[in-house]
Each structure stands twice: as structure tokens, then as C-alpha cells.
Simulated assay, not measured.
Amino acid sequence: MSDLVATVGKLAPVALVFGGGVVFARRKIIGADTSKAFSDFAFLFAIPCYLAGSLYSSDLGRLFDPRAIAAYLVTALLGMLAVGFWSRRTTDARGVALRIMAGVQVNTTYFAIPVFVLLFGDASPIFPIILLQVCVLTVVVIAVMEFGAGQEHSDTPALGAALRGVQAALATPIVVACYLGIAGNAADVPVPRWLLDALSFAGNAAAPVALFAIGLHLGGTGLRLRGAARDEYALIAFKCLVFPSLALLIGKYLFGIGGSWLTYLVLIAAMPAPQNLFIFAQRYDTDVDLAAAIVAKTSLLALLLLPGWLLVAR
């Protein structure tokens, strides 16, 4: 019982900032539409600063643990196959890709990084997963989305559009920051102390701003409990319950991972669906309401379940 109380206490800052955003939006103190400005600040500036400085200063040998990365990759691939096989009979290629993204990808930047910083004082275990998710999983989703769009509009070259989407994914500030941090670390490039301090100062704003932005978004959209899509709650259950369970079983029993890394893998898998799920749904005009509902509901449910997953993983 004392462990549960201690865990909940560690998550109290997350709940406070997240809940503050919800309250501010609901009471119209700050408009929910301003959540995009907060999100853009975190996504385009604060989080890249945090990633670049932290990766440069990290021990890459410890950070990029091959077994842990392989375990997460196997978990993600199995999840993608399960969701894809289950949803292929009820929707088109774009709908399948969107559901795979909802069930397997996680909100690393807006949710996982602030949670890890508050729980462990360090979000570095998430960095390999960010690269894996953006450079592999998101690229697959983009390619399928573009292929589906090309099939619907026969005059659109699907391959060219997919390649442009892949290039855009690899050129996002977060990925570029990871590349710079890793390259500088590996090449032992001297970086002035004042610059590392500046990156740390800007990066420290990422956690509260990102969580507050999610709270504002959720407070403005609310939770739609009725009129849910047929597979909405199945996807939410898979994301918040089945996927972290897979990470636990595969990491512990298939790869023999224990200790801190097992905890990290399970908690990363237990994070909510990514916020850009809604962006992709809008861009490709597919299941927009479903995407918005899954982002909001998994964010709230993940926050409630995190203390339990932390205890189970330990």
C-alpha cells in the first residue's frame, strides 16, 4: 500500500498540470484553441532542445540497449499485425493504418517525456523509442496512408507522395534534434557549457507545457461517451491494457529483461495514443471523430492506470 501511495505521489505533478489545463479550458480562463500554441512550443522548440542536450550528454552504450530495443520492436510489430488483421475487414487501407497507429504508437513527446522526467528525473530511456517510432512506425503509417490516398485518387502518384511524407517525418525538429545529439556525442564534438545550459533551460519547460496543452485540448473537446464508433473502445482497451501487457510478457519472458529497463518498456507502452493521430486523421480525411476520441480517452485512462503499471512492471 505504501508503494502505491508513493507512486501516486510521484504522479501528482502530472495530474496537477494536466488537470489544470482541463479546468482552465472548461472554465474558459484560457481558450481550448490555444492548446495548439502550447503544443507547438513544446513540439517545435522545448522538446527538441531537451532531446539534443540530453542525448549529447548521455551514455549511448547504456541508452541504446539492443535487447530492450529489440523487445519493444517485436512488441510493436506483433501489435501492428494484430490490429491490422482485426481491422482490415471493416475499413480501407487508410482506416487500417490509422487504427494501427492508435493501437501501437505512443504519445512520447507530450506525455511520456514529462512523466519520465517526473518519475525518474530522466527521460533518456524514451529516446530510442522516439527514433524507432518516427523513423520506422510512422514511416510505415505514412506510406500506407499515401498509398490509400493514391488508390482513391488515381491521378495521384502514391509512391512519390509516400516518399515526400517519409522525408517530412524524418525532417521533424524532434528527429533532427536526436540526430544532432547522437552525432555530437558519438563524434565527441566539443559543445560550450553555456549552450548545454541554454538547451537544458529551454528543455525544462517541455514537460509542464506539453501536459498543460493536452489538458486544454481535453477540456475543450470533452469526452464523448455515447455514439462511439464500433471499434473505438476495443482500440482503447488494446492501447491501454493489451499493448503494455505484451511489452511486459515479451520483455520479461522472451528477452529476459528485468530491472529498470523492463519498467521503462512497460511504462512507454502504457502511454496514450499519440496526439498526431488526430492530425493524420484530418490530413487524410479518415475517421476524424474516432481519432479525436481515442486521443482524449487514452490520455485520461493512461493517467489513471500508470500507478498500477508502474507497480506491476517493478
Rank of each mutant, 00 (worst) to 15 (best):
G150R: 00
C135H: 05
Y110W: 08
V134W: 02
L137F: 14
A102I: 01
F120E: 10
Q133T: 12
V104R: 05
N107S: 14
G150M: 02
M145E: 14
P114W: 00
L118D: 01
M101D: 08
V140G: 14
Q151Y: 10
A123M: 06
I100G: 03
V117C: 15
I100H: 03
F120H: 13
G150S: 05
D122C: 08
Q133M: 07
A123W: 05
L132Q: 11
L118M: 13
V136K: 04
P125C: 12
A112K: 09
T138K: 01
V134I: 11
V141S: 04
V139M: 11
G148V: 05
D122E: 07
L119V: 15
A102Y: 04
G150T: 07
V140E: 09
Q105F: 06
Q151M: 14
F147R: 11
Q105Y: 09
P125D: 13
A102Q: 04
Q105D: 11
P128Y: 12
F120M: 07
V117G: 15
V115Y: 03
N107T: 05
V140H: 11
V136M: 11
V139R: 12
A149N: 08
F127R: 01
V136C: 15
V115G: 08
Q151P: 00
Q133C: 07
E152L: 10
Q151V: 14
P128A: 12
I113Q: 07
G150P: 03
L137H: 05
E146D: 08
Y110D: 01
H153Y: 09
I142S: 08
A149P: 00
H153T: 06
I113R: 07
I142F: 12
T108F: 11
V104D: 06
F127A: 02
V144L: 15
D122W: 04
T138V: 07
E152F: 00
L132G: 02
I100R: 05
M101K: 09
V106H: 03
M145S: 09
Y110R: 08
Y110T: 04
V117T: 09
V144A: 15
V104G: 09
M101N: 12
Y110L: 13
P125E: 14
I126M: 10
F116N: 06
V106E: 03
N107V: 01
L119A: 10
F120Q: 07
E152P: 00
V115F: 07
I113G: 00
F111R: 07
T109V: 13
I130L: 07
L119P: 01
S124V: 11
I129E: 02
F120V: 00
P128V: 00
I129V: 09
Q151H: 10
G148R: 12
G121E: 05
F147D: 11
L132I: 02
D122R: 01
L131F: 06
I142T: 14
C135N: 14
M101E: 10
V141E: 02
V140M: 15
N107D: 13
T108Q: 12
I142N: 10
M101S: 09
E152D: 14
L137S: 05
I126Y: 13
D122F: 06
P125N: 14
E152Y: 00
I142Q: 13
Q133N: 14
Y110M: 14
F111E: 08
V144C: 11
L119D: 06
A143W: 05
V117Y: 00
L119K: 08
A143N: 07
I113T: 00
F116Y: 12
F147G: 13
I130P: 02
S124D: 09
Q133W: 02
Q133F: 01
V115M: 10
M101P: 03
F111N: 10
I100S: 05
F147A: 15
G148L: 10
Q105A: 12
